[in-house]
Design a protein around this nucleic acid. Sequence first.
DNA 1: CCAAAACCGAGTACAAGGTACCCAGTGGAG
DNA 2: CTCCACTGGGTACCTTGTACTCGGTTTTGG
Lengths: 256, 256
Amino acid sequence: MTDAEYVSIWMRPERPARGPKPAYSRAQITDAAVRIADAEGLEAATMRRIADEIGAGTMSLYRYVPGRDDLVELMADRVMGEIDVEGMPSGDWRADLTRYAYGVRTMWRRHPWIATVHRAVPSFGPNRLRLIERVMGTLDTHVSIDENLGLMAVLNGYVEGAARDEVSWAEEVRRSGLSETDWMVRSGPYVNQLLESGEYPIFSKIVMEASGPHLHRDDRFRYGLERVLDCIAAALPAPVESPVAANREGREDRDG
Amino acid sequence: MTDAEYVSIWMRPERPARGPKPAYSRAQITDAAVRIADAEGLEAATMRRIADEIGAGTMSLYRYVPGRDDLVELMADRVMGEIDVEGMPSGDWRADLTRYAYGVRTMWRRHPWIATVHRAVPSFGPNRLRLIERVMGTLDTHVSIDENLGLMAVLNGYVEGAARDEVSWAEEVRRSGLSETDWMVRSGPYVNQLLESGEYPIFSKIVMEASGPHLHRDDRFRYGLERVLDCIAAALPAPVESPVAANREGREDRDG
DNA sequence: CCAAAACCGAGTACAAGGTACCCAGTGGAG
DNA sequence: CTCCACTGGGTACCTTGTACTCGGTTTTGG
């Protein structure tokens, strides 16, 4: 293996000092790859395809990127940069985290392939670091780093999980090459079989609810997010001057 | 495209009625695949490797499974069956959900490759259905299906997100082929560079906390889980006769 | 009991995709 | 001007999924 000469993609300089001017750039390659993945899925972003997209030879990409895995890592960090966390922490943690949550969701919907990137978690690119500083910074003055990590796991878990759910369905439909309607028609027989067996009452409820007048996806996301934020509020030491955090016993606070 | 003759893997009968006795079985193939993936990662579970494992010819597998994607789907549902939800709902929703959460975590740690399976979300195998019935059943009598889905998104998001975090690191280490220590040594230079730049105070706190006397992974998981369960408790209509649900204003209830 | 049909396991072969290796051209350093 | 590190990119190889095919076996129809 290339153990000895391994360097993280984030430390590896884009280009050596000497030599001719390069014709392309990491950013250009990453952008092209993201564009393809957005339109046709991550598996369509092959080295050959990306090279074609920018008019380069396939192997030329390897002058800029050690391999495809690292390129995907670059792509992941690149799209994390689209999440707007400017001005955080602002002092209003609830507003900050709400904005962050919607930012993540928007980004996932724009780049569904992000659900299939595994190395995103262990990777610390510049944009990921910025998110950590800004977002965890909003709670940093209120709780210990331990608690902060715990609460962030709850928030991130929910937001990414919800986004992953939405996006996974859409990707499955796209992969099938069918229209959304045709796709549902195709899965109809199996779902019907489950419904008619009578063994899955809860599943049936879910299906029925989905076909009746139901909470829109946005409302559902908002509902869960509010529950998570309430959860964080409850874990915070003392409400200093936030007039929002006073509703915690009833449950008539359904939103929508 | 095989659009016309598409049938979900869950509807497709394992074998036709007629013909000679089959030498293998779907379960046998799935088990072998899971065994390989556990030990060497999902990418090591190639059709050839799986066939070798059970002593079959590569192409023989296609008599039992339409293709690799479907096999992975079978694998995913197979390991979901390891999550013990027997006797749920028991009446004590908090105990049920706690058991479920730890069950999921244990399963993920046993089968880290599950983090890389994308079709798991849109797929409804028998074991996934069982989980839905049992686990969502614990809240079904207390809240609407809408709220139940929302609260489950919070719980599942947290549990899977936390598991994914733990597992992603481990997988990254495994993929590198290095020991955990060597792996950390290898990423040392980059982390040090970040630390010394002084631009990432929160990140530095995380690193410092991780190397000092810190919350063990188990304690951290438990902390987040308790926050989520508190969040669910707060969203429930009215504590009927649960003596546990009475602590919701202070925060001296840190556990561990 | 026999012939045909259906199904079995498995080998051969091909298309994609990542990438090691190689080569000729180029432009900055001396 | 000379040199050589570096460039873009072509060729070729390995791995992996899987379509096709075939000879043998089991079941069915008579």
